[in-house]
Structures are given as structure tokens and as C-alpha cells.
């Protein structure tokens, strides 16, 4: 049975409109104008046990709202979500014990106390048997190197150190499902990699299901094969990242380093010239013919190096969003 089932899920917010300034405030006070905002609009997907899925989308696309519905913080306006066989918003204890939601921009630890205190409180709240707690703690400590952080007050930790503790505190009860909302927000590259490796290891060790949202494409490309692309509350794409790349970008990039500079007109015979800088050039070529063109280049032009690359995922995603915007605008 899938771990997560989402059917025709809609979440609309009523927001009231207020113009700036005193007059605007007064007008809003006496005559409130409400407007529906469709944060999530007819979304469907299922996620199997042990799967890692990345949610991609710009700010306000509906990623966090979806995660909040799945974790029971929000009622759906329409449609349904089923997680581990539970209806999330009922917030049954058996459900709450089996998942965790980590939000990169929220602190869930006791701010003025060392993180260890939060761990012990969570141990009591989740009623974790001592032996299991100690085993889990040891594993988390091995993966995240927590020991030096535990005696410092949370407020004195760096952002990255705090995120390690947040993750550990959220995983002490060994949840089967992890909702990670921007877990690497604001972290430096080393720390991003550490968190990423940890999530991967946790997924492998416990077979946990993971949904991840992130602005850092590397988080998604490193961790997940399947992505769900959301914009304006609707799913634009759900499937393998690789297929999305092939679908949106039917080309690959050939990066070449030549012995001596070659005029762009000649390079243009092989593919669309993206850029030429002295002896370095990048060509855009048809996906299926990339290796053939590369070998032709090698025989006709003296090359030092040639590299066949996928276009950057960022560009592809940007293209998907741009197309969706165009479609919306032409539809209106």
C-alpha cells in the first residue's frame, strides 16, 4: 500500500484585502473584501513506502501548504489526503508517532537550553523505550557528529549546527515518513552536503519515505529521482527528473576546448553555438545525436577536450515555470 495518497486535494485560503495607509485600514475595517487564494488546486499523487520525492516550485507554489495538509496542520478545502492509512488532520496519536516535519525556517528546540534537554523531552513525549532511544541517539550522533553541540544552548549554535540538532530531535522516534521543508535553507555548501548525506543514509537505513522541498537544486538532484513540480497550486510534472530533462530539453550541451580558436560560423555547422570564449565553446546539440556530433568534431577540429553535459536542471525548471506562466496568461 502506498504511504501517501493525495486525491483531488484543494486548499483555498480566504485572505482579506487591505490597502496601505490609514484610509485603507479604515475601509478594510468596515468593509472587508475577501478573496480566495488557491494555494493547492486539484493535486493528485501517490508515494510508495521508502520513496524519496522532491517538491520543486517557486515561493508560494503550494509546496509548504501541501506538506502542512499531509502532516495534519491544515484541513483540505476539498479532496483528501491519506498518510499511512490515517486522515492527517485527525491527528491521532498513532499517526503523529510515525512522521516528522522539519521546517528549515522554524525552530522546534527549546531555544534557551542545550539541545539535549529537547531530546529528553521528545523522548518522553514519544514514549521511546530507553534502549531504543540510546541506540537511535548513537546512530544519529555517528551520522551528524552531535556530541560537541549538545551542551551548548541552542541559541548559541550556528545555523548549521542547529539544523543538525533539529533533525536529530525530529528523528529520535524513528519516523517512517519525513517531511523536510527547506532543510538546508541558509546553510553553507559543506553543511548542505552533510545534511543531504544524512537524509540519504536515514532513508536507506530505515526505509523511510521522504518528501523534500528545497530551493537548492542540488538537494533534489542528489537525493531524489522522482520530482513533483508545482506552480500556483497545480502539478506541472510528476515523474523522473531525467525524463523531465529529456522532455523539456531535447538537447545536450557539448563543452569543447580547442587547440586554436575557431570561428563561430564553422562551429555553427555542428550545433547551436551557446558561447565561445577563446578556445572554449559550448554547443547545443540534439539529444540523440550528441555523441555522433562529438566524434565528428573530434575528427574535423583539433580538440583538447570534449564533454557531453545535461543542461543545468535550474534552467529546465525555470523553463517549465515560464511555460506554465505563458499558458496561464493565454488562458485568462
Amino acid at each position: 500500500m502506498p504511504h501517501i495518497i493525495v486525491e483531488q486535494l484543494c486548499k483555498y485560503y480566504q485572505v482579506h484585502h487591505k490597502e496601505a495607509g490609514l484610509i485603507g485600514s479604515l475601509r478594510a475595517f468596515f468593509n472587508r473584501q475577501y478573496r480566495d487564494v488557491k494555494a493547492v488546486d486539484d493535486v493528485n499523487f501517490t508515494i510508495e513506502a521508502g520513496e524519496m520525492v522532491g517538491f520543486l516550485g517557486p515561493n508560494g507554489a503550494g509546496k509548504t501548504t501541501t506538506l502542512k495538509v499531509l502532516s495534519g496542520l491544515l484541513y483540505p478545502t476539498r479532496g483528501r489526503a491519506v498518510v499511512l492509512g490515517f486522515t492527517p488532520y485527525e491527528r491521532k496519536r498513532a499517526f503523529l508517532e510515525q512522521f516528522t516535519l522539519v521546517m528549515g525556517n522554524k525552530n522546534q528546540l527549546l531555544w534557551d537550553l542545550p539541545a539535549m534537554e529537547s531530546f529528553l523531552v521528545n523522548r518522553a513525549i514519544y514514549d521511546i523505550p530507553k534502549a531504543q532511544y540510546e541506540a537511535t541517539f548513537k546512530e544519529l550522533n555517528d551520522l551528524l557528529d552531535l556530541e560537541p553541540l549538545l551542551k551548548k544552548q541552542v541559541r548559541k549554535l550556528s545555523l548549521g549546527e542547529r539544523m543538525k540538532c533539529e533533525l536529530a530531535a525530529a528523528l529520535l522516534h524513528r519516523p517512517k515518513i519525513l517531511f523536510l521543508d527547506e532543510p538546508t535553507l541558509g546553510l553553507d555548501v559543506t553543511m548542505q552536503v552533510a545534511i543531504r548525506n544524512f537524509v540519504k543514509a536515514y532513508n536507506q537505513r530505515y526505509g523511510a519515505t521522504v518528501i523534500l522541498t528545497s530551493h537548492y537544486m542540488a538537494d533534489v538532484t542528489e537525493l531524489t529521482r522522482r520530482v513533483i513540480v508545482i506552480d500556483h497550486g497545480r502539478i506541472l510534472y510528476d515523474g523522473h527528473l531525467q525524463q523531465l530533462v529529456e522532455q523539456v530539453a531535447p538537447y545536450k550541451l557539448l563543452s569543447i576546448v580547442m587547440r586554436s580558436p575557431c570561428p563561430p560560423e564553422i562551429l555553427g555547422q555542428y550545433g547551436e553555438v551557446e558561447k565561445v570564449e577563446g578556445v572554449k565553446a559550448t554547443l547545443r546539440v540534439e539529444r540523440g545525436r550528441a555523441s555522433e556530433i562529438a566524434s565528428r568534431l573530434l575528427t574535423h577540429i583539433k580538440l583538447d577536450d570534449v564533454l557531453i553535459e545535461e543542461p543545468p536542471v535550474e534552467d529546465i525548471i525555470r523553463q517549465v515555470f515560464a511555460e506554465s506562466k505563458e499558458n496561464r496568461e493565454s488562458g485568462e
Binding site: L110, D112, L113, E117, L120, A124, I125
Partner: peptide
């Protein structure tokens, strides 16, 4: 079962009050 949580909570919050 929430009664079992109190020793941990009281300890943490007592430490917090000292803070």
C-alpha cells in the same frame, strides 16, 4: 500516558527558569 511526560517537562522547564 501524558502523566509520564511530566518529570521530563518539569525538569526541562525548571532548568529554563534558572536560565
Amino acid at each position: 500516558r501524558w502523566l509520564k511526560v511530566y518529570p521530563s517537562l518539569l525538569r526541562a522547564y525548571f532548568n529554563l527558569s534558572l536560565e
